[in-house]
Design a protein around this nucleic acid. Structure first.
Lengths: 215, 215
DNA sequence: TTGCGTTTCAAACAACTGTTTGTTACAGTT
DNA sequence: AACTGTAACAAACAGTTGTTTGAAACGCAA
């Protein structure tokens, strides 16, 4: 499971990569510095040498890896902002594509990314304040403005609620795939993500109270 | 912050109460047995005497407190199952009332309950398997059957997806109240839970693709 | 009283925690 | 050649971890 490194990867970078993976999978307290440094193929003192402390490494994971990745995700919406006429279907489509099969390279990276923020939402730390200010609030500001353009007359509050309804579904669905399997049987898993995406899109378009262009 | 106990509360019960609160707020690894036993006003060895190990205490929190509480929540749906004609509005209404202002005694208990399962969803352990089998799957089975009765012709898969869309919104909304505040200003918090409930109900009824009785 | 099972408690256990230390290795510069 | 600053490392640090121990205190029946 350990990543293969070549000699050009500096130790500091390897520490960030392995720390992010381990923090995301087990949580801050459940990971020891010895586990991280072993995964990064260096010695125990490396974390304190390069980052000052274990906690600082955790914060740097967000600053150097999580936030840039989230910002990358963000670009699709800024493109949408340039367009003159935007429909609800477009917004929801981009929204879902961003987080379910967006620009993130693979499923593992998406999972790591999601689990880090998930833990912060549940048990906020210093990193939570950083993320809310730097990423989440600006992100929702753009979303709200897009929705208000697509549905004139929608209040700020209404637009916010609607966006959160879509996002809530995506977050939850990404967590309950094993439960779906328990409910529907193992063969159901084929194409499950695609099925989920289609459902969330349809459910949300109706939830936005527009007819989806069918009338 | 520590709970006041009278002499009739047996040590074992106090340990379960304090352990649940601390595990929910900080996570299993972030809480020490000394912290739990101090909160329960007993000595360090009490956990191992009464439960055998810290991990066993964690499991007993789910067995003796979490599952019974969830089962209690469950009764509202079984009542609904008795009725001959059930509407989507009723299902969604009971659904939301259950988890946002349901039979749980107060907000603190609801938060504790939610955060325990939230951590298990994110980082599953032995407790996760127990909960899925004993609570979540039976719960969704009843929900699916109810939806299929209210909307004849709905497939099992469709019904499951729709229920999960409602649930996903509720879980997410309970986590983003601080974000809403950051977006809308502090005065917005007044009646926020009621506003959220109304929104989720309306969004979901439309998402279920029924007109809400307006035609 | 005596005896018995249960519960409580301070003290100690080995293992592990994050961090610090002093030293070594290795570039590049003068 | 000697000197420089950076990085890497094994070893040790003091403190905390979950758990165990053995003795004391308890309630209660004989």
């Amino acid at each position: 499971m350990a990543t293969q490194y070549n000699d050009t990867d500096p130790t500091k970078e390897r520490l960030l990569v392995e720390a992010e993976r381990l923090f995301a999978n087990k949580g801050f307290e459940a990971v020891s510095v010895r586990e991280i440094t072993a995964a990064a193929e260096t010695n125990t003192a490396a974390i304190n040498y390069h980052f000052g402390s274990k906690w600082n490494l955790y914060m740097e994971v967000f600053r150097q890896r999580w936030i840039p990745r989230a910002t990358q995700n963000f670009h699709l919406f800024q493109q949408l902002q340039q367009k003159s006429d935007v429909t609800v279907e477009e917004i929801i489509g981009v929204f879902i594509r961003c987080f379910m099969d967006g620009p993130l390279s693979d499923h593992a990276e998406r999972t790591t990314h999601a689990r880090l923020i998930h833990k912060e939402l549940d048990t906020p730390t210093e990193a939570y304040d950083l993320i809310v200010k730097e990423v989440i609030v600006p992100f929702y500001e753009v979303l709200i403005e897009l929705v208000q353009r697509a549905m004139p007359g929608t209040s700020r509050q209404e637009a916010m609620f609607k966006c959160m309804s879509v996002f809530g579904q995506m977050v939850y669905f990404s967590h309950v795939l094993p439960i779906m399997e328990a409910l529907m049987g193992p063969e159901f898993l084929d194409g499950l993500i695609e099925k989920s995406i289609r459902h969330i899109a349809e459910f949300s378009i109706h939830g936005f109270n527009v007819d989806g262009g069918r009338s």
